[in-house]
Design a protein around this nucleic acid. Structure first.
Lengths: 230, 230
DNA sequence: ACAAAAGTGTTGAGTGTACACCCATGA
DNA sequence: TCATGGGTGTACACTCAACACTTTTGT
């Protein structure tokens, strides 16, 4: 295939943890449905063409502002470049992809063509977007265990059982609350606020309220092995 | 700044561990010196413009073949995108960067304008290339402790003391041979060949010869914490 | 008092570091 | 046999998983 020009687009995989009670439980991705050919009806990642005066990060931010409230996006990081000459028909288009995270209780207004989808049951995806979602998910899962990236999925204040649900949903298996607390506190990832939440309808001891210590990505378990001598 | 068109280039940060006896000890980067303005005389990463019929990985491979023998590059992975509209003068150029690794004893023929430089003493770098080198180095250091990425820096067969030098040079501190052996063997990263090397001129017990078990990147220490139950 | 939910203590496995000690070779 | 470099054994610290147990609430 020979192209006369090349375009550059930015696409973001935005994840959210849906309430377990809701219709979209588990981990969700933000997708919009194509209203035009090619691939009419298929679902796409939010994004669009890179402008002349912005870098890729700014572009991702701008394009997301059209879909979700910008303030909701608590974390945004580069994933990778998709550059197969035939990845989309027509003008050659290189895609820079991003991983975006939105805190759990947020449920922003969405345009009519846009919806949250469970990552475990993706609809028919446009072009190579399914691969991008898979890549983003792998990145998120990996970072859950050695960074504080959970801050971008949790509300500012939360109870441990809620945090446990977030971790369980993202990792795909039940996480032990006891050890979650100990690991995260020891690493300084979460801090108790001193206050306690009211106990539920069926009684029970009131839970301590925590918050993430930082609201920026931080590596919390740098070296598993081969540490510097000390 | 307003641009009428946008170009896409691919740049690779190629690392090698120089012999400690050589003039370039420690970790080296492959750079070539600009013979034209802008930034005449400054040092650049190998790479160039992406062609219409290749993806970024293929482009990196192709461009490196002009600098080093392709077979020498044992590992190549995407780093990130640099897209500041003003990062280079003239036509707007978006850069996709790669990390490339070349095994230690290799000393391929280099073009006249191209040279290995110690990363700890970089020359005047062109444009934003110094940042790219720093990013690549950080990525390499991180991966040394939880993947088998060392395979791409070491010769196919080696003695533990040699491997220790490689790890020490990359990590920037002295690694204990004893523990290096135990950690890597336990994880299945390296395997003994059964043979032993001849002992040096000043005597000493002959060292066992090892090789890396795999010659492809593999994560060897997946979860530090929050492992799946069971 | 009792059930429910949250939090604490304890044990044991695993991993990694440091360091002393033993082994194999050349001169 | 001694110096030299390579390999092994052991002790200790730290982290984490699993699970029993205690604490605090609502009814």
């Amino acid at each position: 295939m020979v192209h006369t020009s090349t375009a550059h687009e930015v696409l973001t995989v935005v994840f959210r943890v849906g309430d377990l009670g809701s219709r979209q439980p588990g981990l969700n991705v933000l997708l919009w449905q194509r209203a035009r050919d090619p691939q009419l009806g298929r679902w796409s990642l939010p994004g669009g063409v890179l402008r002349d005066d912005e870098d890729v990060m700014a572009s991702a931010r701008r394009q997301l502002a059209e879909k979700v409230d910008l303030r909701e996006v608590a974390h945004l990081e580069q994933l990778g470049v998709f550059s197969d000459p035939g990845r989309v028909p027509g003008t050659r288009t290189i895609a820079s992809t991003f991983l975006g995270l939105v805190p759990a209780p947020a449920d922003p207004e969405l345009p009519a063509d846009t919806r949250w989808h469970p990552v475990d049951a993706l609809p028919e995806m446009a072009f190579d977007h399914a691969v991008m979602v898979a890549d983003a998910r792998a990145r998120l899962v990996a970072k859950m265990s050695y960074t504080n990236i959970g801050f971008a999925l949790a509300p500012t204040e939360f109870v441990l059982s809620a945090l446990r649900e977030i971790y369980s949903v993202v990792l795909g298996y039940q996480v032990d609350v006891t050890n979650l607390q100990r690991v995260l506190v020891r690493r300084g990832v979460i801090t108790g606020t001193g206050t306690t939440a009211r106990s539920g309808r069926s009684g029970g001891r009131p839970a301590a309220v925590y918050r993430f210590t930082d609201s920026e990505l931080r590596v919390t378990d740098e070296f598993a092995a081969l540490r510097p001598p000390g």
